[in-house]
Design a protein around this nucleic acid. Structure first.
Length: 441
RNA sequence: GGUCCCAUCGUCUAUCGGUUAGGACACGGGCUUUUCAUGCCUGUAAGAGGAGUUCGACUCUCCUUGGGACUGCCA
């Protein structure tokens, strides 16, 4: 255990951006690595945009990624009284003053301003960016209470960090300017200044901040597209940090053991969907058979197929199908399309594959001949099927037989091993589908 | 405009003064092969530019160039 306390302090005003969740990941890892506490604070002072639904979405995303937090959730809106008490303190000590101002949108009213020191340098040693310094004169006084009496981010944020005894603030790099201001508030209050670590942004191919226009920008979208939380977590972690050496795919335990905030990169990182996709496939291939099976069953059920059909297969064939599918699965929700032929006779026929492999002279005869041969095949196994076609091809390549069979029995040009597919389907279905396809030619 | 920050293959990165500048994704080729994949082997590809410090600079310093952040009664 240590005294380290970090927090993830999102304002729940929409979906969870990947840059945002990466900050949560780094905070979480830092806490777990150091044996400190990871706190969740909901900055819901903007009540119009902060809905219970938005808060729930955030919690769901965190749970999905395995980001568990310590202690109770801290709601900023419940601490408003304290924020204003502290402002009074600041007013009394001469660190703040009231003034009439006109806002951008033309509202005029009395706001409370924090008074910045007029000279000297404000400096701090950022854990990731190094020494940061700024002349006090370069920072103007800033508002901390609106004309309607509500506290503004700067004061609320600092007071909450004091109240939650936060020791390390790890957040987006868009906050560095605020940090100089916040340090002055901590000092005016006589409170210890926490350590800071500012994270670079995730950018798009143009080097601009990654937004929804660049593709999936929100955590929920990755979940819906069939990404594994472990893969997204791993990928996002690597976008700005690595353990050194060649390791890239890490277990959660390794991440916790190896993570060092000091080694987080200062430069912005470009988001590469291709690499994330690769990593997702990597995680699926490395998944245990139990995990794969569970997701397979969930996908099959969600697609409306009858799992009983799968359950009725001999256990050896179940394993065979699962093994064959696993190395070919890029996303969980690719599964329904891949397995449709096993659950229904009404699977879609890929027109391109049909044109290329079936609508050719002589194919009809080949299919009918194969149907007869398969019908007589005993036992109806992968090895027997392959041996039979091999003999037919006389060492000239099995293409002319194999391709039409695949399209006829599955409607697709690609998929699991052909003879494995036939064995799993069984003799009856295989033969029937061959004849059915021949009849359409 | 002002203030602050950054700069190695197309991308993510290793290197903490001495390396044939390494790995991964992507891309190309090959092997395995009935398709699609997987797996294995392999190729192309990088220190922005210029000064300095040093026996020696990707690494340290400065300048230039290029990029980014911030500059709200948003957070």
């Amino acid at each position: 255990m240590s005294d380290i306390r970090v927090r993830f302090a999102p304002s729940p005003t929409g979906k969870v951006h990947i840059g945002n969740i990466r900050a949560a990941i780094y905070n979480w890892l830092y806490a777990r690595h150091t044996g400190g506490k990871f706190l969740l604070r909901v900055e819901d002072t903007d009540l119009e945009r902060s809905t219970p639904e938005a808060i729930q979405v955030r919690c769901d995303c965190m749970k999905w990624l395995g980001l568990d937090y310590d202690e109770d959730v801290f709601y900023q809106s419940r601490n408003v009284k304290r924020h204003l008490e502290v402002v009074d303190q600041l007013l009394a000590s001469g660190h703040a003053y009231k003034v009439e101002r006109t806002s951008r949108d033309g509202k005029t009213g009395i706001v409370t301003m924090f008074k910045m020191p007029k000279d000297g340098t404000i400096a701090f040693d950022d854990i990731v960016k190094g020494h940061m310094a700024k002349k006090a004169e370069d920072i103007q006084d800033f508002a901390i209470v609106r004309s309607d009496g509500s506290p503004i981010f700067h004061i609320a944020n600092v007071v909450d960090d004091i109240d939650q005894k936060v020791t390390h603030i790890i957040r987006g790099d868009d906050h560095v300017e605020n940090t100089f201001k916040h340090i002055c508030i901590f000092q005016a209050l006589g409170a210890p200044v926490p350590k800071y670590g500012h994270l670079s942004m995730i950018v798009n191919q143009q080097g601009k901040p990654y937004s929804k226009r660049d593709g999936a920008a929100f955590v929920g979208e990755y979940r819906d597209q069939g990404y594994l939380p472990e893969a997204l977590f791993n990928y996002l972690l690597l976008l700005g940090w690595n353990p050194g050496g060649d390791r890239e795919v890490l277990t959660r335990e390794e991440m916790i053991r190896l993570f060092e905030l000091e080694k987080v990169h200062v430069t912005a990182a470009m988001f590469d969907p291709k690499k994330l996709q690769w990593m997702n496939g990597e995680y699926i291939r490395r998944a245990t058979k139990e995990t794969y099976r569970a997701n397979f069953e969930a996908q099959v059920k969600a697609a409306g197929f009858d799992l009983g059909i799968f359950a009725a297969l001999k256990s050896g064939l179940q394993e065979l199908l699962l093994d064959q599918l696993q190395i070919r699965t890029k996303f969980w929700n690719d599964i329904p399309a891949m397995v449709a032929p096993f659950f229904t006779d009404d699977y879609p026929m890929d027109e391109k594959a049909v044109a290329k492999r079936l609508r050719k002279p002589g194919v009809k005869e080949i299919l009918l001949d194969l149907a007869d041969r398969f019908e007589k095949l005993e036992p109806f196994t992968t090895a027997a099927g392959e041996a039979m076609v091999k003999e037919l091809s006389q060492g000239q390549g099995m293409g002319p037989w194999v391709h039409p069979i695949r399209v006829a029995v599955s409607g697709r040009g690609e998929g699991i091993g052909l003879f494995e597919m036939c064995e799993i389907l069984g003799k009856e279905k295989t033969v029937a589908r061959l004849r059915r396809a021949a009849a359409t030619l």
